[in-house]
Amino acid sequence: MTQQQNRIDRRFARLRSEGRKALVTYIVAGDGGLENTVDLMHQLVASGSDLIELGVPFSDPMAEGPVIQKGHERALANKASLRKCLALVKEFRSKDADTPVILMGYDNPIERMGAEAFADGLQEAGADGALTVDLPAEEAGPLNEMLEARNLRNIFLLTPTTSDERIAEITRLASGFVYYVSLKGVTGAGHLDLDSVRENLARIRRHTDLPLCVGFGIKDGASAKSVSADGDGAVVGSVLVSAVAEATDGAAAKDRIGAIVSEMRTALDS
């Protein structure tokens, strides 16, 4: 890669040199109140998150299980939007210059804004990349160019059903890290198969040196530790979105997600 390092690359380089695994955390922007999102992001970092995936709410989140779907619905009821997500990242960035942040969402809000305006918006807000769930490699070209031109990373999903040929194609476009979806299913599903994760990570490793983070089906420190044993990190989402949903106010949400992330951090570092 000829590009200069950005926050994502620096973070994974540091973790690698320390022999530690990355803890990637996901919450939905605006869920639990737009006014609380930035506080929650700082709490994620304080409790041990290495990278934040900020979920951009969408009316039709096709790949999400019920927990995250409801998070999107609550966020939209709170009038969250892609534009406001960018503003939240900017606010977060004013107090945290180091923690990488990517926006994770669906293509239509980006289409509406325009790929170029979106990439400009990410750069201006101080975000580090994007993961667009329903934009597979064959449709991702135009957005990819816009991101690359701004030294932003494009995170792709790989799954148990991705063929070797596609892994090669996708890892050519991918940057930052690769998100391996541990199971066939939607977010929050429960049937984690560690043997399959191990085999598939080895298969992917033959095609790329990018960090490999594993998500879907990770509920606690133990599952985070076991899935990341053969990769570079774990992604956790649904349990955090559940915790935000169950909290009665912003302070309670901070406490709950703080406790979950701390427990995972401790397990990952043990």
Binding site: M62, A63, D107, V133, D134, L135, P136, E138, E139, F156, L157, L158, T159, P160, T161, T162, S163, R166, I170, V181, K184, G185
Partner: peptide, 21 residues
């Protein structure tokens, strides 16, 4: 690739690509 001019295509999460192929 399933395009009718600028329309159509395949905008799904990666898990479904192999089934569509």
């Amino acid at each position: 690739r399933g395009h009718f001019g600028q329309f159509g295509g395949r905008f799904v999460s990666e898990t479904l690509i192999s089934a569509l192929d």
